[in-house]
Design a protein around this nucleic acid. Structure first.
Lengths: 193, 193
DNA sequence: GTCTATACGTGGATAGAC
DNA sequence: GTCTATCCACGTATAGAC
């Protein structure tokens, strides 16, 4: 995908991020070279450094952008604990199903972050988990839910929901509505008193 | 860890596998060099090739060994569907908690397998899932369980259980017995009619 | 069976011309 | 802003001495 010389700062930046996202998700951060990213964008490797100081920042920006969007999008509190939980389950599955590459990177490439960058991403992930745990605690307090340890319950539910991404395909046997319905059924029964 | 020249075939082989396991789990297959493995074992890089034809085989052997052991260890059928499910849940959590490095590699490094090796590991993983799905189907048939789609139920339960490995630490707040008890409580409620 | 030495490719990142 | 050219470190794997 050769390109001619010229100025394209406004469009090349997003293209670099997009190419890195796709390639990191497919091959893994460590296995993807800056040259491969440049080839995908249609520039030479040296030109990438107009848009990122280094490869590590490219990974970190993708992960932070994803986590920021997740935290901005998660439903705010409202309604009964059961209503809130249902809303959370549907939101989590749909949000993640829409962004398979971002989700894959956010889970698989944590160990390739520098210690400082890892700490920041970990904090955002914790903040997201806290949203769900607050719902479970409210439900336990109101007597609607029976969850022995809300922290474990939180991690168990998130692991179960995120697992959808490992197998769900839009062309597959089941619609996303059906998937959401069954997961909600399982989660609901698992936490109800 | 310098070593003197000599013959150590009987002990070096297992040490190579053990070092590769630990380093792959910590840093990721792509980021770990043969030199790093050799350093951990205490030999020069060239000597590794007496024990493995290449790096890919090292990864594949670790994963196949893990999956073989998993399939040999999984409880065979017996008792009511509810009893079988309880046994499966306890087995899965304990087996995986005992082998954090193997489990981490088996889930994270699938994409670094050659296509042929990937197909073989995928087949073993599928066989393991089939064990659980058979239990769910038996429970649905007997009327004990209410699971809309046993394939989804299988994947949801396995994802939930395997997630324990991302946070459980033996020195932590909860004993493995307590963890098993709460997960069994959630799984049981989730599938019961 | 392990060593040293090396072939050969590729990695991230930078310099300077245009 | 992008290009070409390059630096230098490191990767897997092999050859041949001991």
């Amino acid at each position: 995908m050769a390109r001619t010389t010229g100025s394209h700062s406004d469009i090349t930046g997003p293209r670099v991020r997009s190419a890195a996202l796709r390639l990191f998700a497919r091959g893994g951060y460590a296995a993807v070279s800056m040259r491969a990213i440049a080839r995908e964008v249609g520039v030479q490797a040296g030109a990438l450094y107009n848009y990122t100081p280094d490869k590590q920042s490219l990974l970190f920006d993708l992960m932070r952008g994803h986590m920021d969007e997740l935290l901005e999008s998660v439903p705010k509190r409202g309604g009964t604990p059961l209503d809130q939980l249902q809303e959370f389950v549907a939101f989590h599955i749909r949000f993640h199903a829409d962004r398979p590459d971002e989700v894959f990177i956010a889970y698989m490439e944590l160990r390739n972050l520098s210690p400082e960058n890892f700490a920041e991403i970990e904090g955002l992930r914790r903040a997201y988990e806290d949203r769900l745990e607050a719902i479970l605690r409210a439900g336990v307090k109101s007597g609607d839910f029976a969850v022995a340890d809300t922290k474990i319950g939180t991690l168990a539910i998130i692991a179960m929901l995120t697992g959808v991404n490992t197998w769900f395909r839009r062309e597959g046997r089941l619609s996303l509505d059906e998937v959401v319905a069954q997961y909600w059924d399982m989660v609901r029964k698992a936490v109800l008193a």
